[in-house]
Design a protein around this nucleic acid. Structure first.
Lengths: 353, 353
DNA sequence: TTGTACGCGTTATCAA
DNA sequence: TTGATAACGCGTACAA
């Protein structure tokens, strides 16, 4: 072994590209590989003197266990996979950050995959991850039948879906109160006396969009008001267009519920362009938080999703399974949203929110 | 092997938790393991008939190579590590997304680590990553002496730093024109006739903050103007405070350069609170893009960083090394920024930017 | 308490 | 062209 490495003045210099292995340590310390292994893993059944000798060598050579070998042997890669729909979306990025934090606490690495909300890409990623023997899988499922997940689950891979449920597969799931959140927002607008409240939402097939629309309709029906919605505005531009469609009509709505970030931004642009005032001419509430919401004037009222908690809870649910918690049935956790009341809904300005 | 698995009506059902291995394939196809391996790896030296028979079995059993075993044997994990300072920062998230995309194109998995810009956390993560035998490392270095990187590099691990250089270590680096970008912005304000231009920046020890301050000073000096800067505003609140400090002074500046996102938001809040108008009372230019910049009124002028390209180029530089490109010296790539002129600087409104 | 032998799933070597 | 056999680095089972 020393053939490929050199010890110079107490500093071990591994050959280029060659890492120190347990064998190197064992040889250097004059013990068996197994004993070295025991010391590294902190097993108690080692002579103290020997242990400290080995520890010294480990330190000096800078030995690092090879996790690939460990995983191969031990059937645990200490790695989990995350397939997210779009990391560049701040909401998702915060989820990812929270998940990464939990993984770290639990000594696991996190492989990040961005499916761009595409089912085939997701499928490919799930393959990549299982090939890497991940211990578990967290994902924001793409729309469509996530059939590929089923085989993995049957093979014993714990899977947790979050933000939206996986279609056609029974997995643990962590969601957000989309419907209740939308209902709260709509009711708040109704409470301000509005009777014509428009809904600008994104792709109708998206789970979150559907649920939010349901909540909106629920609130309107309870108040005996007519729904007035536009869907499929999945970009700022389309959101702007849809909003203008509403606001330029003869009998225009006096309030607007923008069901996601993009439509909210589009709505703001439209309102600005038409020279209307918020909230005097149109009151607005959005769904999902953004950094500038309290910088805008008037301050923007919105339904806040607990992004970090969503990620954290999903990760914890996964690690629960890894720890052997045996819930035979898939679990479902739904986290509450929070209506952050500021000024765009028509409420008076607060001191310093 | 069939002891732990069953073949029923053509469908192979692996035992719980047990995955199909090359042995299973070989047994089922009646060939040697090595032959099965050859087929899987597309080696040309296989009899066509045999190859298709094996391929069929691979398909039917749903065989997936175990990347851990491959990595253990082949000394290539096909995995790269990314240590980023803060994924919840949209700029970083976009970098991460771009990197992930390149990794995917190259058939590599990406392990994501969030150092929270903390050197010790970074150190721990680098350890975690090398234990996982990553083939290369991309990172946004934390401030301080990144000594731990040196040992890894010596052991043959390619390292690419991006957004900021690693201190005390010589690595490939991809940066953005912080200085030139800040100079451009400042010059633009000078071009509008401003003579008192304040700089609101974040932590003075940060590389990016320093470079931007340099650029700002350069522009002022060239125009024989007095610099007027405040530093260490590393939150929206502090940015707001710092801005108010400037604007409430007797001889207040007529223009403001906010050197990062947080200070830009803080500045906007401060200006709003003081009842000043943009750009009539104070012209403003920021550094770094944000989703709402063109939704704000007036539209916000800023220096845009090529986030996706930064990530992509860094990843490509890393894969270049992995492909064996042998540049003995560390390389450094500096990407240009772009001054996105809108209205907050005092320029007239554009039709539809 | 310590060491030996084997296996994890794969690829590489070499002989057939 | 194909197949035994030996690695890769580590942990487990068992023996010393």
């Amino acid at each position: 072994m020393v053939a490929l490495a050199t010890i110079m003045s107490g500093v071990y210099i591994p050959g280029p590209g060659r890492r120190v292995t347990l064998r190197d340590v064992a040889l250097e310390a004059g013990v068996s590989i197994k004993t070295a292994s025991r010391v590294v893993n902190g097993e108690p059944t080692v002579n103290a003197a020997m242990a400290s000798r080995v520890a010294e060598v480990v330190e000096r050579l800078g030995y690092r266990p090879n996790e690939l070998a460990r995983g191969l042997k031990g059937r645990r890669s200490r790695t989990i996979g995350l397939v997210i729909a779009d990391v560049s979306n701040p909401f998702m990025a915060i989820c990812a950050q929270a998940i990464e934090g939990v993984a770290r606490e639990r000594g696991h690495a996190l492989i990040l995959c961005d499916s761009h909300a595409d089912l085939r890409t997701e499928d490919a990623y799930v393959g990549l991850l299982t090939q890497r023997q991940v211990d578990g899988l967290l994902l924001v499922p793409a729309r469509g039948h996530n059939a590929h997940l089923e085989a993995e689950q049957r093979a014993g891979l714990p899977v947790v879906a979050f933000d939206r449920p996986a279609e056609g597969v029974r997995t643990d799931t962590v969601l957000v109160e989309n419907r209740a959140g939308a209902r709260d927002a709509t009711e708040h607008l109704i409470g301000h006396g509005h009777e014509r409240i428009a809904f600008v939402g994104d792709v109708r097939h998206f789970y979150t969009a559907r649920k939010r629309l349901e909540g909106y309709k629920e609130a309107l029906e309870a108040a005996n008001l007519e729904p007035l919605h536009s869907l499929d505005a999945h970009s700022v531009e389309l959101g702007e267009e849809a909003t203008k469609g509403f606001l330029e009509a003869p009998d225009r709505p006096t309030a607007l519920f923008a069901a996601n970030i993009l439509t909210a931004l589009g709505a703001l642009r439209a309102i600005e362009d038409l020279g209307l005032r918020i909230p005097e001419d149109v009151a607005v509430i959005g769904f999902d938080d953004f950094e500038l919401a309290h910088v805008l004037r008037p301050r923007f009222t919105l339904v806040r999703q607990p992004a970090a908690e969503l990620g954290r809870r999903a990760a914890e649910m996964l690690f629960g399974r890894l720890d052997g918690q045996d819930h035979p049935e898939p679990r479902r956790l739904v986290l509450p949203t929070e209506l952050v009341v500021r000024e765009s809904c028509g409420c008076p300005a607060q001191p310093t929110p």
